[in-house]
């Protein structure tokens, strides 16, 4: 019988951690891009656009991420497209992330004083010019801390991809547990690795929050 040392388990978990990181980054970056597009729609003041984005956000914030993963995994397959766990996970996490980021960023945009909008309107700026040159540069400063804070949720969210069979840190933990029968050790190590990924981000978010309050 093959014997597993603690180092064997740990090094295998580290290999899988790479996929957790890759999935997190892709979800965060793509989610950020989709979220930015949605932010423009959400704050545009065009009724149908606002309405559609509101429904989108309500859906992705009001349903479990796990269910969204299932829906993407089984839903895309209905169109006759072969879905890999990787593709379903990336898509679900991207859309889920975008909904939360849009909501966070909307709060930041709305915290910009109304006078800024009025001043830029009186300078005959279009909506996109206002956002690009006046609102977003100011809003983005406020947005940094909560955005970094949310990235922790994205990293933790990727753990659910294990359920539809994507091999990342959690799935690797389950597989190693099945091979070694040492659940206490395996899941402690898995938790430890997640902690090492997430804690620096949480810590940074807290520090950024503090710095912003001083600046005001």
């Amino acid at each position: 019988m093959v014997q597993f040392t603690v180092w064997d388990i740990f090094s295998n978990l580290l290999i899988a951690t790479e996929w957790t990181i890759i999935l997190s980054i892709i979800a965060f970056v793509c989610g950020g891009i989709v979220g930015l597009v949605l932010l423009f729609a959400r704050t545009s003041g065009v009724r149908p656009l606002v309405f559609v984005t509101k429904i989108y956000i309500e859906f992705f914030q009001g349903t479990p991420l796990l269910m969204q993963l299932f829906l993407f995994f089984f839903g895309i397959a209905l169109f006759g497209i072969e879905v890999s766990p990787w593709m379903a996970a990336t898509m679900a996490l991207t859309f889920w992330t975008s909904a939360f980021l849009t909501e966070i960023w909307r709060g930041c945009v709305e915290s910009i004083p109304k006078g800024q909008w009025e001043a830029s309107t009186s300078l005959a700026m279009t909506y996109f010019e206002q956002m690009r040159y006046v609102i977003l540069p100011q809003a983005s400063r406020i947005a940094v801390a909560p955005t970094v804070g949310f990235s922790v949720q994205v990293v933790k969210g990727t753990a659910l991809a294990s359920i539809i069979g994507f091999v990342e840190l959690t799935k690797a933990g389950t597989m190693l547990n099945n091979a070694t029968f040492r659940p206490f050790l395996v899941y402690s190590l898995v938790a430890l690795i997640y902690f090492c990924l997430c804690f620096p981000l949480s810590f940074m978010a807290k520090k950024l929050e503090g710095r912003l309050n001083v600046a005001r």
Binding site: P183, S188, V190
Partner: peptide, 17 residues
């Protein structure tokens, strides 16, 4: 510890660990 680890890992730790 709880805020920086996924819920599913906490669950597995409690149930399997």
């Amino acid at each position: 510890l709880i805020r920086n680890t996924p819920f599913i890992v906490q669950l597995f730790f409690i149930f399997f660990g």
